[in-house]
Simulated scan of single mutants.
Amino acid sequence: MSLALKTLQLKARYQVYTLLAGNNLSKMHGEGYDFSELREYQIGDDVRKINWTITAKLGRPYIKELHANRELSVVVAAMMDGSLYFGADNLKQHAVTEIATILGYSAHHNNDLFTGFNFYSDKYTLAPPTKQLYHIENYSKELYEQKILHTALDYTKAIQTLSTHIHKRSLLFIIGDFLEPVDLSLLAQKHEVIAIIVRHREEEKPHKLGDVILDNPKSTQSLNTDFSTTSIQHYLAKLKAHDETVQTHFIHYNIRHTKIYTDEDPIDKLVRLFV
């Protein structure tokens, strides 16, 4: 394990045990309960607990008793492709890794079940449901070392994989730069989805470069262009329209979200999500 990765993990673990201590990851209400038994309705019972299907079959009212299930299923899905390969030192990929590591340590600290997905190209690897630090740290290492240059992620396939592989209602974090259209509506119907957008500030405030050759990090293609004020304005207009569409999608499906830049400490914005 590289020293940089070990430092990242130590920092994330320290922050979880200090800044996140006592904060519940989930804001789900009424979902953290398992079925216990059916029994006949008694005067004073909450009528909202009546099971109308059983009541209709038996001809008298029955209610559904539940017992608390405190264990939360936390799923982290990292969307990894060439678009993360931006700026010096591969900072976007490192930020994704740090965020995923913090979430993994937080799940472990709360004694919740953690599952980690690493999506890249048309493939994925999986850290199976676990409470073991070894699997969480191995997932962190995998994200940090994932080869992403000249790769393009199949987002539709990734979302379908999540939909078919996560059976238990979960707190699902999806981490990526969200520079591609992503439809999370199906996942939001089944799970509590939180989107974490990772960006480099220069992606949103680019500098004039003049005549340059731009390499596409998602392919081996290059573009010889004049990256002038006009080009920047055109680029920013398209980015703004895209981000507004993404924002509308999140609001419509009640998806909590935050944006974290590579020059920020992610723990600050994560804390705001949890409190």
Rank of each mutant, 00 (worst) to 15 (best):
I260Y: 00
L239Q: 06
F86K: 04
I136T: 07
I267D: 07
A100L: 01
Y62C: 06
D265C: 09
Q160D: 14
K49F: 06
F117S: 02
I213H: 02
Q189K: 15
T115A: 02
V47D: 10
V193D: 01
Y14I: 14
T18G: 06
H252T: 08
V96A: 06
R70C: 03
A107W: 02
L103F: 09
P181I: 04
G30N: 10
L273P: 14
L38Y: 13
T7N: 13
V212R: 08
I260M: 05
G176Y: 04
D243N: 13
L66V: 15
S26N: 11
L133C: 10
A195K: 06
S170G: 03
E137C: 01
M1T: 14
A152R: 15
E204K: 13
I54N: 11
S228P: 02
G82L: 10
Q247T: 12
P129V: 04
M80G: 08
L236A: 10
D81A: 04
D45T: 04
L171T: 03
A127M: 10
W52P: 04
D183Y: 09
E137I: 05
A95R: 08
L10S: 09
V193Q: 00
G116Y: 01
Y139C: 03
I251H: 13
L223Y: 12
I50P: 05
I251V: 15
S73I: 11
E65S: 07
A100I: 00
D268Q: 15
V74W: 05
K269F: 08
P128W: 02
D45A: 11
S73Q: 14
T230W: 04
R70A: 12
Q146D: 04
P266T: 02
T229W: 09
D177L: 03
S140A: 13
M79F: 12
M80E: 01
L172N: 00
Y14G: 14
L133E: 12
T164V: 11
I196K: 00
T225L: 11
Q42C: 13
L187T: 00
R256K: 13
G210L: 00
Y134L: 13
N69I: 05
Y155H: 03
Y14K: 15
T262D: 05
E71N: 10
L91D: 09
Y17E: 13
G22L: 08
T262N: 04
E71T: 14
V246D: 08
H249Y: 07
I232V: 01
E71V: 15
Q233P: 05
H108E: 12
P129E: 00
H167L: 00
K205F: 02
H108W: 14
K190S: 09
L172S: 00
N111Y: 09
Y261V: 08
N118L: 05
A77F: 06
L270S: 08
S219G: 10
A12V: 05
D215P: 11
Y253R: 04
I174N: 08
F114D: 01
T97L: 00
K141L: 07
K147R: 14
N118M: 10
Q233T: 01
I148D: 00
K168Q: 07
Q189I: 08
Y155E: 06
L91T: 11
P128M: 03
N138Y: 09
T220E: 13
V198W: 00
